[in-house]
Nucleic acid binder design. Structure first.
Length: 270
DNA sequence: GGTAACGTCCTG
DNA sequence: CAGGACGTTACC
């Protein structure tokens, strides 16, 4: 366990505070959709030997310092925190997910059918979930501990997959976010939709405290970017709405296509 | 009443 | 178009 980064435990008072109020809901990388310049193949073909993996996995004191929630707001500290917002930061998470979904990240054994079998989604944060892939990954993939919560790594037996496929999101959408009441029919349409509670971001339990929404919570009034419900990101009834049916919100990546192919080949389905 | 967070408008 | 700011709603 010690090798696994704590993807759930708050690492700062602020985080603890914020997570205290966070509902027990799951997660998923609400990675920036269109701003990731690299496709899966890029990450695969780029072992990134030049990257100091250890440095990423175990941020230097300077990095950690920078990652601390800024008490004041001295603009943005360069370096570590920027990883999260900068294209590079997000695309690390993005890459991670791409790899996961492509099966390059080892899913926990026993993923065969039903994976974690049982309360798969309950044990999202612990028990060997992280250890299975991290060493493998760390060998060539730049990871940071904070990236795990952000990227929504839950290796619990294929859970990631269903979430990524977005199937749950649809149901959750209907069941929760778009209930007639919240749709605001007859209410001027200003009713708030609710989080679906099913998608990975919804399952995230902790705020990253690094993204702009977290850092700017007081003014921004926005939930952590990485906890933002996938369904709420979409305009109700908007064109993007249907994209979830085709799987995941990775329109900016060529992975969607590849995924579709993989699925049709049965590579992901069993 | 306080806080979280959705929706919308504004700005770069 | 993305991100930030703010109004507003929802929940405690």
């Amino acid at each position: 366990m010690s090798t696994a980064v704590d993807i759930a435990g708050p690492s700062s008072p602020d985080q603890a505070h914020s997570s205290a109020k966070i509902p027990n809901e799951p997660l998923r990388p609400s990675l920036k959709r269109s701003s990731h310049p690299y496709s899966l193949s890029h990450y695969i073909s780029t072992p990134s030997p030049a990257v100091d993996v250890k440095g990423l996995i175990q941020p230097s004191p300077a990095q950690q310092r920078a990652a601390q929630p800024a008490h004041t707001k001295p603009r943005r500290a360069p370096s570590w925190p920027d990883m999260w917002e900068s294209p590079s930061g997000l695309h690390l998470a993005h890459a991670a997910e791409l790899l996961m979904r492509a099966g390059l990240l080892a899913l926990t054994p026993g993923d065969g059918e039903g994976g974690a079998s049982g309360p798969e989604e309950e044990e999202e944060d612990s028990s060997g979930c992280g250890t299975d892939f991290q060493p493998f990954l760390g060998a060539w993939f730049p990871f940071s501990p904070a990236l795990f919560p952000l990227a929504g790594f839950q290796m619990g037996g294929g859970h990631w997959r269903s979430a990524a496929m977005g199937a749950e999101g649809i149901e959750g959408l209907v069941a929760e976010g778009y209930s007639p009441g919240s749709l605001g029919a007859g209410n001027g349409g200003r009713r708030k939709r609710k989080r679906c509670g099913e998608c990975v971001p919804c399952r995230r339990q902790t705020n990253c405290e690094q993204c702009s929404s977290c850092r700017n919570r007081k003014r921004g009034h926005q939930i952590c970017k990485y906890r933002k419900c996938e369904e709420l990101k979409r305009k109700p009834g908007g064109p993007g709405f249907e994209s979830r049916v085709s799987g995941f919100d990775l329109r900016g990546s060529d992975f969607t296509l590849g995924l579709a192919q993989e699925r049709s080949n049965g590579a992901l389905d069993g």
